[in-house]
Structures are given as structure tokens and as C-alpha cells.
């Protein structure tokens, strides 16, 4: 009786079999990526979360036997709150500046002929060809008290410029480092734009600025949100740029986490901070999928 059922080739059975087959193929193709992510990403991530609930022992090691929320409670500390606030503000500032710089550029890029677009896109990516650390040290030279920027202002009679080792230098460096992450998604969403819709707005009596505000920007929102997240998240937890251009005077989240792991040898607090940071990132990503990721 069972054999009769399984061998029967009803249309329903066939379509089920086709479905199964497709799913199996999809899984096989995705398997290497799944496995890699599971071993090298999800597993260490789990360890971080587990450590954040553990306790630091007297010798700077971590006891996994005693589970508690102490590390999270310690995060609600005046010093750490300041660090969080400062990191948040600088990341936000970086994101806003990137957005203001990248939007007009991406718009320009999207309205060029394909050849010019490709050339300009290569220019956007050129910085990636050199080491991030080296580029940050280059900025240190640029902004230093005997660097070109300072020389120029001295020549103009404006006196010495002392930007290096200030929050301004950090934001400058972060904007420089993450600008391509804003340009690329913005360009992608502006490039897909149906330009006849913008013409329709003009035809219906909108000025250029009204068209931008009512049509262009709303339609490029997925790019704005994606770019903002791509810039905000790494800026929020940035370590290299604040260390090099901020000179460590300004303790930010990234430096704090590193110091907890390496200097204070308080792994649970470091892990807890990282977990909170990840939660913030996850929340932003969810926001993206809800607001910008839906197809317009």
C-alpha cells in the first residue's frame, strides 16, 4: 500500500519532488559559505557572548563557572557612559558628513555616461588598494604641526593649526576612511532610479529642489539607510583611526574594548561591551530591513 503511494506520479507529488530538489540544490551550493560562517563567525561570537556573563578572577583570567550580569551592570558606569556617548556622537557626525558629501557626488556619478562612471568609481576605490593603517599615518603627517595643512595656514597668516589628536582629526579620518561605503550604496540606488519620474515631477510644476526633496531623496532612501549603517557601525566601534589620529587622548569604544582585553585583562567587561555594540548594530540592521530594504 505504501509503495503504491510513493510511486504514484500525481501532479502534486511531482511538484513536491521538484520543490525538494530545488531546495537541496540551493543548500548544497550555499553549504561552503554556511560552514565557513558557522565555524569562523557564529562560533567565536557565541564565545564572546558567553564570556560576557563570566567573572574575572584575581589573576586576570576568566572563570566560566560563575554566571552573572556583573559585567553588564558595570557598563552603567559614568566613565563608560561618557565613552559611549562620545563614540556615538563622533560616529553620528561622521555619518552625517559622509552623507552630505556622498549624496551630491553619487548623484553626479549616476548621471554620467557609463565610461565616465566606471572611471570615477575606480577613483572611489583606489584608497582601498593601500593599507588602512598606512593611510591613517599619512593623515597624521598631513595634519601634524609641521605638516602641509599647518604650513598653509601659517603662510596665510592664520597661525599654526593644531588639529591632530583632536576629535576633529578623528572625524576627518573616519570620514575619509568610510566615505566609499556611503558612496557605493547611494550610487547603486540612484543609478536604478527611473529618471522619467523626476521629469514627471518637474512637468507637474515642482522646482528642482522640490523634486529632490519629494521624489529623488525618498526614492533613494534604501541607499541612504544602507550607506548610513555601513558608515555608522564601523565608526562607532572604530579603533585604528581614533588611536592614530586621536592619539589615544580621547578614549572611544574601540579603544576601551581593546584595553579591557589586553591591559585591564578584564575579558568579561570587554565581551559585554562588544555584545552591547553588536546589539546596537543588529538593531540598526533591522531598522534598515524594515524601512529601506523593502522594495519600493
Amino acid at each position: 500500500m505504501t509503495t503504491a503511494q510513493t510511486t504514484e506520479l500525481s501532479p502534486k507529488n511531482l511538484s513536491d519532488a521538484n520543490e525538494r530538489n530545488k531546495r537541496r540544490q540551493g543548500f548544497l551550493m550555499a553549504f561552503p559559505a554556511y560552514a565557513y560562517l558557522l565555524i569562523f563567525f557564529a562560533f567565536p561570537l557565541g564565545i564572546v557572548v558567553v564570556y560576557s556573563f563570566a567573572t574575572r578572577n584575581r589573576f586576570g583570567g576568566t572563570d566560566l563557572s560563575d554566571w552573572n550580569f556583573d559585567s553588564y551592570i558595570r557598563l552603567n558606569d559614568e566613565v563608560l557612559r561618557n565613552i559611549l556617548f562620545r563614540s556615538f556622537t563622533l560616529a553620528l557626525l561622521t555619518t552625517v558628513i559622509c552623507l552630505l558629501v556622498a549624496y551630491p557626488f553619487s548623484y553626479f556619478l549616476a548621471t554620467r555616461t557609463p565610461t565616465i562612471r566606471n572611471v570615477l568609481l575606480v577613483f572611489v576605490m583606489i584608497p582601498f588598494w593601500s593599507n588602512f593603517l598606512v593611510r591613517n599615518y599619512a593623515w597624521r603627517v598631513l595634519l601634524g604641526s609641521d605638516g602641509p595643512v599647518s604650513r598653509l595656514t601659517e603662510l596665510l597668516g592664520l597661525g599654526e593649526t593644531r588639529i591632530l589628536f583632536t576629535p576633529t582629526a578623528i572625524v576627518l579620518g573616519l570620514v575619509y576612511g568610510f566615505l566609499p561605503f556611503m558612496i557605493l550604496p547611494l550610487y547603486a540606488s540612484l543609478e536604478r532610479l527611473d529618471w522619467s519620474v523626476l521629469e514627471a515631477a518637474r512637468d507637474l510644476g515642482a522646482t528642482g529642489f522640490q523634486t529632490l526633496r519629494k521624489v529623488t531623496i525618498p526614492l533613494s532612501m534604501p541607499g541612504v539607510i544602507a550607506g548610513s549603517i555601513l558608515v555608522f557601525i564601523p565608526s562607532f566601534g572604530a579603533f585604528v583611526t581614533p588611536e592614530i589620529l586621536g592619539g589615544g587622548r580621547e578614549v572611544l569604544l574601540g579603544s576601551f574594548i581593546v584595553s579591557q582585553f589586553l591591559e585591564a585583562r578584564n575579558w568579561p567587561v570587554g565581551a559585554a561591551t562588544s555584545t552591547v555594540l553588536m546589539a546596537v548594530m543588529l538593531a540598526s540592521a533591522l531598522l534598515y530591513f524594515r524601512k529601506g530594504g523593502r522594495t519600493l
Partner: peptide, 19 residues
């Protein structure tokens, strides 16, 4: 410019505002 003309257009693919 188009916004200063007393004409309106029905576009080929309608060009409705999708949002």
C-alpha cells in the same frame, strides 16, 4: 523649465511616483 509651462505630460511608462 517644465514647471513654468502651462502643459502637462502623460509619460510613456506613466512615470508614477512609486513611493
Amino acid at each position: 523649465p517644465p514647471n513654468k509651462r502651462p502643459v502637462n505630460t502623460v509619460f510613456q511608462n506613466y512615470a508614477l511616483f512609486p513611493h
